[in-house]
Design a protein around this nucleic acid. Structure first.
Length: 474
RNA sequence: UGGGGCGUGGUCCAAUCGGUAGGACACCUCACUGUUAAUGAGGAUGGUGUUGGUUCGAGUCCAACCGCCCCAGCCA
């Protein structure tokens, strides 16, 4: 199979080469049959695994990241998505490979074969002595690759997001995101939670109605993009016990801060017969597992980002916990004008999280500032059995959750008070009609968590294609 | 939505008091056998967000609009 794919590749290549030569009127580059044979024998490897192959002839398939010239020596740098590798080729020793690479444009796709050698002068400690080069597609000089190895503005880079993700920094972030997801799911599965997917089309809001994306469903019926899988995961929790959902959620919030996207991913656990304390335990275990997984398996990427890993290594349960009531006192003691009953903004969160080098859990917020489905604290009825987790270093709230209202009458009253369409919530009220039980859960914002772990200033870098207020391209 | 800031070649930036719109990168050519976003020399392309106003003269001053960035509210 592999061989067949490669020979098709060769055919394509010859056709392209011939075509280009005709139109551009250049001399046909001599085909190096020996090199092709050598290439087909050399194992294709990923750049991240290059150094153990020192002394061996291997093939790399990727793109030309940069090309430095020094007389009759060329120093191309290749990237293949797993890393970058410097090559070296001299005119004297490998004239055909030299000619193929000389003047080659940035991001042209190539298949190169050569010997890996340790080399202290090369970035990364090893380099490839190139024997053969096949240019799969040359980026035309008339329209060069738009992203340079220089500084660019944010707006330009976001317009070029489909290309921007090729840069080593962005690729490292996306790989860390993937590791965070894997670590999170492994942890949840190991805790006995079952993944149950929530729908994306929903009949009604579960957060505020002002941030709903309305869509035209079939036959002019109205539907909305989900703001949270929470309500559905409450239903599956009553069916399966311990469950979680992981998927995209949508909020048409008119907020243009570095912590907001209109489309973001949430992991939302829910457990029947669980209480607030269980979820605080689960939340700190989950976040610890995510950080641990990234530090363990993506240390190289964190290094690419220049992230201070020692800060991440300190992240392990238990996390500091503070009640809302005490948090207000802490703020007031620090001279902040916060009053009991105020919600905390970014400044307040930063102030509290600065006291610790781990995420902080703030619990038992006043009910008035939480969603209609939150349970009230029997010991202090003005409070809800809710909690938020604030990331360190000012990255904001990464978890929000708590115990749910399990009483039918109270829930109906709160739906009415929130001006929500009662008829759309009948299925949800059924959960309180048929075997209602205490249950609790939370939502973890993936992008905020990854932004904190990566240390990126803006959340838009940690999702492949960010959707923000006024940006849906590319 | 409110407050603040910014719009100049493909990109990143200069332009003094309102007085000839410039250079760096990118692209091309040449030189260079160890480059590290290579360097040096040369070449071609290409620009003041839009509309109106003030003025002998506007990138610069004024107004409106458009776009972007940051902060706040809200949230994950």
């Amino acid at each position: 199979m592999k061989f067949a794919w490669r020979s098709t590749g060769w055919k394509l290549l010859r056709i392209r080469t011939a075509k280009r030569t005709r139109t551009r009127g250049e001399a046909l580059p001599p085909l190096n049959e020996m090199s092709q044979e050598a290439q087909m024998k050399a194992p294709a490897i990923a750049i991240e695994h290059a150094s153990p192959h020192a002394g061996q002839v291997v093939t790399i398939r990727g793109w030309l990241y940069n090309l430095r010239e020094s007389g009759k020596l060329l120093f191309p740098i290749f990237r293949d998505g797993t890393g970058v590798l410097q090559g070296v080729v001299s005119l004297k020793e490998q004239p055909q490979a030299f000619e193929a690479l000389k003047g080659l444009t940035q991001e042209s796709s190539v298949i190169v074969t050569g010997k890996i050698q340790t080399e202290p002068r090369a970035p990364g400690g090893c380099e490839m002595h190139i024997h053969a080069v096949e240019v799969v597609q040359k980026v035309p000089e008339s329209s060069p690759y738009p992203i340079q190895l220089k500084e660019h503005g944010v707006d330009f880079l976001l317009d070029q997001r489909h290309l921007w993700i090729r840069t080593p920094r962005q690729a490292a972030i996306l790989r860390i995101r993937a590791e965070a997801i894997r670590a999170a799911r492994n942890f949840m599965d190991a805790q006995g939670y079952t993944l149950t997917d929530a729908p994306i089309f929903t009949p009604a809001a579960c957060e505020g109605t002002t941030t709903l994306f309305e869509v035209n469903y079939i036959d002019d019926q109205k539907a909305y993009l989900t703001q949270s899988g929470q309500l559905y995961v409450e239903a599956t929790a009553a069916a399966l016990g311990k469950v979680y959902t992981f998927g995209p959620t949508f909020r048409a919030e008119k907020s243009k801060t570095r912590r907001h996207l209109t489309e973001f991913w949430m992991l939302e656990p829910e457990a029947a017969f669980a209480h607030l304390a269980d979820m605080m335990d689960l939340g700190e275990g989950l976040v610890s597992a995510i950080v641990e997984g990234v530090v363990k398996n993506r240390a190289r990427e964190l290094q690419t980002l220049g992230r201070d890993i020692s800060k991440l290594e300190k992240i392990a349960a238990p996390f500091p916990r503070i009640t809302y009531d005490d948090a207000v006192k802490v703020l007031q003691g620090a001279g902040n004008p916060a009053k009991w009953g105020d919600d905390f903004g970014g400044d307040e969160e930063t102030l509290i999280s600065k006291e610790f080098d781990k995420p902080v859990i703030i619990h038992r917020y006043p009910s008035a500032m939480k969603a209609f489905y939150m349970a009230t604290d029997p010991e202090w009825p003005e409070l809800s059995l809710s909690f938020d987790m604030i990331a360190p270093e000012g990255f904001g709230e990464i978890i929000g959750g708590g115990e749910r209202q399990s009483d039918y009458e109270t829930l109906v009253r709160r739906i009415r008070e929130s001006n929500l369409p009662e008829e759309a919530f009948q299925w949800y009220l059924d959960l309180r009609r048929y075997g209602s039980a205490p249950h609790a859960g939370f939502g973890l914002g993936l992008e905020r968590t990854v932004a904190w772990i990566c240390g990126t200033e803006h959340i838009r870098e940690v999702i492949p294609f960010p959707r923000m207020l006024y940006r849906v391209y590319p």
